[in-house]
Amino acid sequence: MNPMNTAVRAGLVRGSTELRQALTNGADLFGLLFWPLVMIVVLFFMRNGTVEASGVALGAFALPSILGMLVAVNGIFGMAQFLTLEREDGTLLRAKAIPNGMVGYLVGKIVTVTGWVLIPFTIVLIPGLFLADGLALNTVGAWLSLIAVLALGMLATLPFGAVIGSAFNSPRAIGFVSMPIMGLTAVSGIFYPITSMPGWVQGLAQVFPIYWLGLGMRSAMLPGEAVAIELGQSWRHWETVGMLGVWAIVGLSVAPIFLRRMARGESGSKVAARREKAMSRAY
């Protein structure tokens, strides 16, 4: 039996087991459901609003943008938090110690984080279809476009979550990254059209994948006339694919380098020191 295939299969089993455990653990389940439920409440209060003079329902505009935000934020933070937590408790060191253990570990993390993205995505999407008026998600092509943007968005964000997780020794340090990402989310046209923001803010937002994920989701879910509130009055399909593709290629190229460096630097003494430091904080 091919050792690599065995490692991949073990990773798939590991990831599905972790996801099942998360769905039966109260704290994990709360963390998984809290923000999606908040977003549903936000959509409920937005349902009667419109975007400026365009006539586009505010809820219809916000739903695909929120979905794009969930993919980006959950993909980045989910991967980063898992890596830092399991680096601190020694899980990563144990994976490193067995043949092809890192391959199985990473496959398992991809499965787990994919679940952490898809479950909130579905929780918001299904009620959102009933709360938001004016959506155009009524053809096979629209659904295929939505799935394609979702897949490309995950490829663009999960590797950078691995990079961030590799760069920090402690899960508490991830909090320092949250503020810039939340700031980018605020200026990426998630809850209000980016066209209403200053030019330099528009330029900054377009560098990062959160804006392009929101735009791609809106192009799949909104009617054609809604394009009037976008930059250049265009869905910019090729630009969306290009920017998310660039982020995916760069991330997939850089993440293995960071992960290998992180794995080489792990040792029993470092794990023990981090554990002792964490225990001292608890007391």
Rank of each mutant, 00 (worst) to 15 (best):
S145Y: 14
L213W: 08
T240W: 06
V241A: 05
S166W: 11
F176N: 00
M179Y: 09
L144Q: 03
M154S: 02
F191C: 10
G216H: 12
A132N: 11
S178Q: 02
N138C: 04
G153F: 15
S145H: 13
T185D: 03
A186T: 14
M197D: 03
S170T: 08
G189P: 13
Q202T: 15
I164T: 09
P198G: 14
E225Q: 15
V241C: 01
T157I: 01
G224P: 12
S170G: 02
G183D: 10
W212M: 02
F160V: 02
A151I: 06
G216S: 13
I181H: 02
I174K: 01
L222A: 05
L131W: 00
V241Q: 03
R218S: 08
V177C: 13
G199K: 11
H237R: 07
G183M: 15
L231P: 04
A186I: 09
N169I: 03
G199L: 14
P193N: 04
I229C: 05
D133M: 08
A220M: 07
L215M: 03
L204R: 06
P193V: 02
G214W: 06
L131G: 07
F160E: 05
V241P: 01
V227T: 14
A156F: 04
G203N: 15
E230W: 08
W235M: 05
D133V: 05
I194Q: 07
A205Y: 09
P223C: 14
P171A: 01
L150C: 03
L204A: 11
I119V: 10
S219Q: 12
W200H: 08
I119T: 05
M243L: 10
V149W: 13
L129E: 01
P209G: 11
L129S: 03
W238A: 14
W143E: 07
L231M: 04
L213V: 04
F191P: 13
G214D: 04
L129H: 02
L158Q: 07
G134F: 00
G242T: 02
A167G: 07
W200R: 09
G161F: 06
A151T: 01
V207P: 08
V187S: 06
M179F: 12
F176Q: 00
N169K: 11
V201W: 01
G203D: 13
D133E: 14
I174Y: 02
A136L: 15
F191H: 10
A148T: 15
A136F: 07
V201E: 03
W238M: 14
S188A: 05
I123M: 13
L135G: 00
V177K: 06
F160I: 04
I123D: 08
A186G: 09
N138Y: 06
P209Y: 09
A173S: 13
F121M: 11
I119L: 12
A156Q: 02
A132I: 06
P120V: 13
F130S: 06
A148G: 15
L135P: 04
N138Q: 11
G175A: 08
F121H: 12
A162T: 00
V140H: 12
P193Y: 06
E225V: 09
A226Y: 12
V140E: 10
T240C: 04
I181R: 05
P171I: 01
G242H: 04
P127A: 07
V227P: 13
P120Q: 15
G214R: 06
T185P: 04
L231G: 05
I190S: 08
L137N: 09
A142T: 10
P120W: 15
G134H: 00
A136R: 10
E239K: 03
L131C: 04
I119P: 03
A132C: 15
H237F: 09
G175N: 08
